[in-house]
Structures are given as structure tokens and as C-alpha cells.
Amino acid sequence: MHGGDVLQLDLTVIWDDFRLTADWGAEAGERIAIIGPSGAGKSTLLMAIAGFVPMQGHIRWNGTDLLAAPGKRPVTTLFQDQNLFPHLTVAQNLALGLSPDLRRMDGVDEALARVGLSGLGARKPAQLSGGQQGRAALARALLRARPVLLLDEPFAALGPALKHEMLDLVDRVAGDALVLMVTHDPADARRIAGRTVMLADGIAHPPMPTAALLDSPPPALRDYLGA
């Protein structure tokens, strides 16, 4: 743990037989991938930071404990699915990032333009392709402008080319924000993440430089990668 960390984790999640601990920090603007076998708790870690999972210990943001309700945290979350309300238009879905009561619409068009969805604001999510739905969710993250962006494999269903496009978009959209991204694909980690957290056997290990970690993986990760 060093002085530049804006986010500091020192937490344990316990559910029946399941146990997950994390004790590390991350700096502003970092891109960190979280990789590990399925069922190891990658999503759980993310949901604990987002405030949906009860835990013991501390999550500190700029040195103070994060205790607020999910919506009040300095965090934007992209879930595996259900990131858009199907009954609202794309523009309304975006505007929820500005104010939950939809009183402000300023900046929605620019955000749509930045993710390449110009002119589609009036559509309902069901009229968008999978990639377009992901872009819309990212555009809302842009409007929310929170310093942490949590991605729980929102693009897992997309093809490789499209997914890479989306990851590049994430990188651009996130700007100075810290990105924590769950993935099961090492290529995703290599593409945008400077550091990677390996999660295995109930421990989310401190982030290591991605290339070094993946080039010479420890045994647990090697089993998972099948290399």
C-alpha cells in the first residue's frame, strides 16, 4: 500500500462457506483488471465496492470509509446485464446519470455523440444492438462522471472485435477515473489494464503489472489460463 492510493481495500466477505479477502489499494486513473476462475468471487468483490454486498473491514476512498448507499458512492457500475431500463428512451436512460429524477437533459446529446450513438436518443433499448446498448451504458457513465468505474463483464456477450472497440471506448470515456474491470479473458486485461488482480482461493491478490503477471503466471493462474 502506498501513498498515491485513492481507493484502499481491507475487507472480508463471508457467505456460508464462501470467503473472500482483499487488502490492497489503487491509484487514480488506473486501469485494473480482475481475473480468476469463475465462482472465485470476481463479481462479489466489485459488488462489495459498489455497496451491494455486506462485508467486514474497510473500503476507504481518499482515506475515509465508504459507507454510503450504492447510489451515493463515487462509483459508476456497469452490470453484466440490465444496464438500461427498457421502458425509458436511450436519452432518458442517459439522463439518469445526471439526476435520478430526470430533471436535467443537458449534455445527453454530446455524450451520445462521444460513444457514437448520435441521433439514437429517442429509441428504446430493445431497438439497439448489443454493442449499442453497451455504448449507451458507457455514455451514462460519462454523464455521471464518478471517479471510479466498475465493469462487471458488461461486454462478455460481444464478439472479439466489438469487445476491443468497447474496451478502447471505456479507456477514453473513463479519462482520469479509476477503472476496475472483471474479465475472464487475459486479452482484455492486456488491452487496457496496466495492472491485474489475480483472484483465487478466496484471496484477491494485490494488483501486479499485467504483462509480467500473464507472461509468468503463478500456479493458480496458470491452471486457470490452461497455458
Binding site: 450504492p70 447510489g71 459508476t76 431500463f85 446519470g97 435520478p100 455521471r144
Partner: peptide, 17 residues
């Protein structure tokens, strides 16, 4: 969860969700 993550509470949650 999505509504929680967007801080949609009270009237906003009722009206828009």
C-alpha cells in the same frame, strides 16, 4: 440494483421506474 446504483430513490424511483 441498477436503480440503487443510480441513486433513484423515493419519488424518482416511483416516477421513472
Amino acid at each position: 440494483r441498477l436503480a440503487d446504483s443510480l441513486a433513484m430513490q423515493g419519488w424518482a424511483r416511483l416516477r421513472w421506474l
